[in-house]
Simulated assay, not measured.
Amino acid sequence: MAIGRQGAAERDLDGARVAVVGATGALGSLVAAELERRGARLLVVGRHADRLAALGAGIPVVADLGDATAGDAVVAAAREHLGGLDGLVNAAGVVAFGPLVETPDEVVEELFLTNVVGPLFLLRRVLPLLEQSQGFVAQLSAVVAERPMAGMAAYSASKAALSAVDAALRTELRRSRVTVVDVRPPHTETGLAGRPLAGTAPRLPQGLAPEDVARRIVDGLAAGEVELPAEAFG
């Protein structure tokens, strides 16, 4: 298995206070379960209270990533229930397919709101807590940030923008000793491609098992890796 780029000391996740945003998604739920298995104390963040409750793990926080106040809700819950925060995993995201000229304006807007703007809103509010704990941020970008695909121009651009955020923050937060992890897995069988905002997914090769991807992400967090490119997933 290829290894991601090292950048920080190994991290003990037992007892770590971690917020997982997009925790009801196929991959987010598995990341949350893997973190809990390793002893992390969780906030699980998503838009639907019933789906959060069904996870049976962590402290639920109902919030929409596209709302600038989502970060305020995460910070308030972290302070009230956990006494702070050691990590943030952003596993939320949306996808769309089709030529750019056929992609409605509102779809382009939603792609960037959920995949880029919302995470920026969130980070502005949560980073002060992570600076206090010298914690970590892990954001799930995608392989298209490295290799943009025709028929996925807006989606590719949104994920490349998220990876750019991570690269900039890694330097910006160096003195604060906050680790920023950019995760760019290959196509994974999460079912997201079957739920696009618009268009129809092209024929894709068999994707990776989401359980394996989630485990590799958490392994990377524990190992102190700061970059998990597509090749790091084997």
Rank of each mutant, 00 (worst) to 15 (best):
R5D: 12
A8E: 13
A8L: 00
A8V: 10
A9H: 10
A9E: 14
R11L: 14
D12Q: 11
D14L: 09
G15S: 05
A16K: 00
V20H: 04
V20I: 11
V20E: 03
V21Q: 05
V21I: 15
V21F: 05
L27N: 09
L27M: 13
L27W: 03
L27H: 08
L30E: 01
L30F: 07
A32V: 14
E34T: 14
L35A: 07
R38Q: 12
R38G: 03
G39T: 02
G39V: 08
R41T: 09
R41H: 13
L43I: 13
V44H: 08
V44S: 10
V45W: 06
G46Q: 08
R47L: 14
H48M: 01
A49T: 06
D50M: 00
L52C: 08
A53H: 01
A54F: 07
G56E: 07
A57H: 02
A57G: 04
G58S: 04
I59H: 10
I59Q: 07
P60R: 06
V62G: 01
A63P: 02
D64H: 04
L65H: 05
L65I: 13
A68S: 12
T69H: 14
A70G: 05
A70I: 03
G71M: 03
D72V: 10
A73E: 00
R79Y: 03
R79H: 07
G83Y: 06
G84F: 10
G87Q: 14
G87E: 12
L88P: 06
N90W: 11
A91F: 07
V94H: 01
A96V: 03
P99Q: 09
E102L: 08
D105Y: 12
E106P: 05
V107I: 15
V108P: 04
E109R: 11
F112T: 07
F112L: 10
F112S: 09
L113C: 02
T114G: 10
N115T: 10
N115M: 03
N115P: 11
V116W: 10
G118W: 04
R124E: 10
R124T: 13
L127K: 03
L127I: 15
L127V: 15
L129V: 07
L130W: 04
S141C: 15
S141W: 06
A142M: 05
A142I: 08
V143I: 15
V144N: 10
P148I: 11
P148K: 08
A150V: 14
G151N: 03
A153G: 06
A154C: 07
A154R: 00
Y155R: 02
A157N: 00
A157M: 01
S158I: 06
K159L: 02
S163M: 11
A164E: 06
A164H: 08
D166L: 04
A167I: 12
A168N: 09
R170A: 15
E172V: 07
L173W: 04
R175M: 08
T179H: 05
V181K: 02
P186Y: 11
P186K: 12
G191L: 09
L192R: 00
G194K: 05
R195T: 15
A198H: 13
T200I: 07
A201E: 01
P205M: 08
Q206V: 15
Q206Y: 08
G207V: 07
A209K: 12
A209D: 15
V213G: 00
R215A: 14
I217D: 05
V218C: 10
A222D: 15
G224K: 04
L228F: 09
A230C: 13
E231R: 09
F233K: 06
